[in-house]
Design a protein around this nucleic acid. Sequence first.
DNA 1: CTCGAATGTGGACGCTGCGTCTCGTTTCGC
DNA 2: GCGAAACGAGACGCAGCGTCCACATTCGAG
Lengths: 173, 173
Amino acid sequence: MHEAVLAIVAERPMAALTMEGIAARASVSKQTLYRTWPSTSAILFDALLARSLDESGAVVVPDSGDLAADLRLLIAGMVGELTDPVHGALLRAVTADILGDEALAAQHRELLLRPQLAAIADRLARAGVTDAEDAAELLVGPVLHRWLLRTRRFDEAWVAAHVGRVLRAVALA
Amino acid sequence: MHEAVLAIVAERPMAALTMEGIAARASVSKQTLYRTWPSTSAILFDALLARSLDESGAVVVPDSGDLAADLRLLIAGMVGELTDPVHGALLRAVTADILGDEALAAQHRELLLRPQLAAIADRLARAGVTDAEDAAELLVGPVLHRWLLRTRRFDEAWVAAHVGRVLRAVALA
DNA sequence: CTCGAATGTGGACGCTGCGTCTCGTTTCGC
DNA sequence: GCGAAACGAGACGCAGCGTCCACATTCGAG
């Protein structure tokens, strides 16, 4: 089921993700799909959710004591996910759907986004950062910006520089 | 034409924006629409482009000499636009379409995003900021993050704090 | 002013996907 | 082994797509 969605999203333009297409690809009747999900958006989100909880087992923010190194690792990991052809396409598709569906957006916020940001904020707070949530936003926001709007590519140098800037912003460097 | 698109986008769910709907609303035949635009996405983008160039006359980054005050003004202005029911809905719709259409994304990047970021980077560079483009991204990214993912509301206090953090990040505060 | 070309309207066309439905047919739990 | 629940297949009417045609309107050149 999820495999079918991933395959279609990865290899065809987003608009080609249809209920009938998924049903055909997964060798399943439309009825069965509608039994569980009301829309392609819902299946898409479910696939993302499964993949997120499954693979990485919730959110893992490294904590070695060296905050700068940990953040570089964290951002590098995010970049890796965003850059991955399959996961990246999936994320892009879900993000697009979220913009037009407030209910779905709320789910995404509560189940995926909030925990992830909270974990990052936690790590920052533990290192003595005040306004840890705003700092987490400062860390993640530009990554989203660059990826979503495809302004420029990611590279290691940028990741390091970015983490440096964020640490300076929160007065810990 | 553009009015019809704005009206529909503002008052109905995004998915309800159809060629037939726009044609009807604008009292125009589908033929006429297809003569100029290949898709709803294209009309949408055109409407945004017109509105952006028209109203604000390209990009205006305040330059009073007081960098912090200027940036606060700039961000407050952005927040105002993003929060506006009509312009906000329009931006959301275009952003969603961009995620699924690389050609459209390229147009958006070149005609709207790049000039806007360049203007901000310019203002920063004039104030002595190195890596001005990265700094501009650092300034705008979190705004996009908060708006797009609807994590939290904007308020004046946050804007001021955010600008403060960015200035500290680039070592000018 | 007139007439031809360009442009526009209204609507019909076949097609794809939606969401619902009815069929038989598995495939379970007990 | 049997009854109930779940499933595959596919037909249904509907909405929107993108194309096409017949006819009206507008407009500029002579």
